[in-house]
Design a protein around this nucleic acid. Structure first.
Length: 587
DNA sequence: GCCGTTTTCGGCCCGACTGTTTTCAGTCG
């Protein structure tokens, strides 16, 4: 039973208890436990076997016992009894926007409705308006919610949401003189890998003018709700966008609040309470009603006795405890990045020439760039044979003669073939400057098979990095069955680095496995996997993913200078232990 | 159901918006 399956069960238990009218804090406890399990970053069976379940925040004796029963027997009596009381179809009604536990229970008890389709039928027949507390408007609203549910678009990748959000922010600033400041907030500012909706914030003394400018933006398809401080719209691409407008002097508190996450904010408010303060998007309130208004986020955190916490960490995964203890990690930053270790050119399936890719990298201030075109067995990508690699080497050498501040390295993205063998002979690999090894084929092999393939590459002395280790494509392809925990352990032993692939649709490793890798002392390579010069621009998405996994510069291979990178590689090949040299800033 | 440098019992974040209401409940984030 996987973490996700356990989390699903506890979430459904929470939903069923909610519908039954159980104490809301008990309901919350189940949802919190589910969230913790889902974001554990390692298989919960390891904690179970080690007897450390109750060390996970939000898991106490009752839920630990239920986890034990589920993992031991595959069943949970408590859950089965609840399922007898609340039909699964009734729980599914909670998926309808604006239908919560109270309404779901009402629909079930008074009209016997047990599916979204039945609710839709009843609404069309005008039956919902006969229920206490519901009128014609609620009925129409629920019907609209069901239609939205049917055409619901899934979460979209971070990299796809950014340009739209940037357009909206720019639009606000350009179209409305009353806007003092505007910014992206929410999960987008926290740089989650996928985005469910776009949260925006504006500072202004004239909210109404800002709301008008927002709701008339060309991206906007439909006005969902509108009040004096908040407007929600649906965009033409199907995404929902929410805008909050606040007074400029409250900017810091508002930005903090609206960035979330919700779980992080709840923790902050609990801290505030202990100090006799109440925290909201407007700032702090003392018990006598006087206010502490915060113009910056730093002031919000300082008032609570905390250092400013980077948005990427605000998920209630230990960052507040670390901030209290003064042990927040110094996260890797853009200025730390010295080069990109994985790009393609028109020698294989890329669109740019060697010179074009090199100049684009130089323009970013990089000191080096690894050309890692595909290898021969990936025919669709015109993978390189040993002969063509030799020809490419000559061209790279010629290009390198013209720079004294930048170096092109010759590498490859080596195919890990379906039988686990590598796509180039050892002597060819040994002649390259750097090797990224990746799986592109037979992604549906069983866990043992595909894990063994990657293990083989990890233990090869010429392989420096495992590329996009999970193989996921966001919204299209689940990760392969590869045992990432085992891969991370093996990488820690062999000194092989794991990639954080920055392509917006990949972001692979994900933040949770980055965190696990950092804990295990594994080096990360934050790479763009660019297939054209503009593709280099996606590296910040991988950088953010690494930051979400608590990575510091010393965890990241491509923060090393060229000399250090070469020394790191040499030390691995010779098996020597290497001390950590100081990093040089890119300036 | 979880949790504790104010607590092992008694708390548990806070506000906006909507609809159906005469002051509030439900939902959402």
């Amino acid at each position: 039973m996987t973490n996700r399956e356990l989390a699903d069960i506890f979430n459904r238990i929470g939903d069923m208890l909610d519908i039954l009218g159980e104490n809301r804090f008990k309901v919350l406890a189940y949802h919190r436990a589910a969230d913790q399990i889902l974001h554990l970053g390692q298989d919960i069976r390891a904690c179970w076997q080690a007897g450390t379940l109750q060390q996970i925040p939000g898991i106490g004796p009752a839920i630990a016992e239920k986890i034990d029963e589920l993992l031991t027997t595959g069943r949970l009596e408590f859950y089965e009894r609840l399922q007898d009381q609340v039909p699964a179809g009734v729980v599914s009604l909670l998926e309808i926007p604006d239908v919560g536990p109270k309404t779901a229970r009402l629909l079930w008890e008074r009209l016997g409705l047990q599916s979204v389709a039945e609710v839709e039928q009843a609404a069309r027949a005008g039956k919902l308006r006969t229920l206490p507390g519901l009128g014609a408007k609620s009925e129409a609203r629920i019907l609209a919610g069901i239609e939205a549910l049917y055409r619901r678009s899934d979460r979209i990748p971070l990299g796809a949401a950014w340009p739209v959000a940037a357009d909206l922010v720019e639009g606000l600033k350009a179209r409305c003189a009353e806007v003092v400041d505007a910014a992206v907030a929410g999960s987008l500012r926290r740089m989650r890998s996928t985005i469910g909706d776009i949260d925006l914030l504006a500072a202004s003394e004239s909210p109404a003018a800002v709301m008008r400018a927002f709701s008339s933006h060309p991206h906007v398809a439909e006005l969902l709700l509108s009040g004096p401080t908040k407007t929600s719209v649906r965009l033409h691409n199907g995404l929902q966008a929410d805008l909050r407008v606040l007074e400029p002097q409250r900017w810091g508190a508002a930005l903090q609040y609206f960035t979330g996450s919700q779980a992080h904010n709840i923790r902050l408010r609990e801290l505030a309470q202990k100090q006799g303060l109440s925290l909201s998007e407007y700032g702090f309130k003392r018990q006598d009603g006087s206010e502490i208004v915060c113009r910056t986020e730093e002031e919000v955190y300082r008032t609570l006795g905390l250092p400013w916490i980077p948005p990427e960490l605000r998920e209630d995964r230990g960052e507040i405890q670390a901030a209290l203890a003064g042990t927040l990690p110094p996260l890797v930053e853009w200025d730390d990045i010295q080069g990109d270790l994985h790009v393609h050119t028109n020698w294989s399936d890329g669109a740019g020439t060697l010179a074009e890719m090199a100049e684009a990298a130089r323009a970013k201030g990089y000191r080096y760039l690894v050309i890692s075109d595909h290898t021969q067995s990936l025919g669709v990508a015109r993978g390189l044979t040993p002969e063509r690699l030799r020809e490419q080497r000559a061209e790279i050498d010629a290009l390198n003669a013209q720079w004294d501040d930048f170096v092109l390295l010759q590498g490859c993205e080596l195919e890990i073939k379906a039988d686990g063998s590598l796509d180039l002979p050892d002597e060819v690999l040994a002649g390259l400057d750097f090797v990224v090894a990746s799986v592109h084929s037979s992604l549906r092999q069983d866990p043992a098979q595909i894990t063994a393939r990657v293990m083989n590459a990890i233990h090869h002395p010429s392989v420096d990095v495992i590329g996009h280790p999970s193989g996921r494509i966001l919204g299209q392809r689940e990760e392969s069955a590869v045992d990432l925990e085992a891969i991370i352990r093996a990488a820690a032993e062999s000194g092989t680095a794991l990639e954080v692939n920055s392509t917006p649709a990949r972001l692979d490793l994900d933040d949770l496995h980055v965190r696990r890798a950092v804990e295990m002392g594994v080096k990360l390579a934050i790479n763009s996997d660019a297939h054209h010069p503009a593709g280099l621009d996606s590296l910040p998405f991988g950088l953010a993913t690494a930051r979400r996994g608590w990575a510091t510069a010393s965890d990241v291979l491509n923060t090393l200078t060229l000399e250090q990178l070469r020394a790191w590689r040499q030390a691995r090949i010779t098996g020597a232990t290497h001390s950590e040299p100081p990093r040089g800033g890119r300036g």
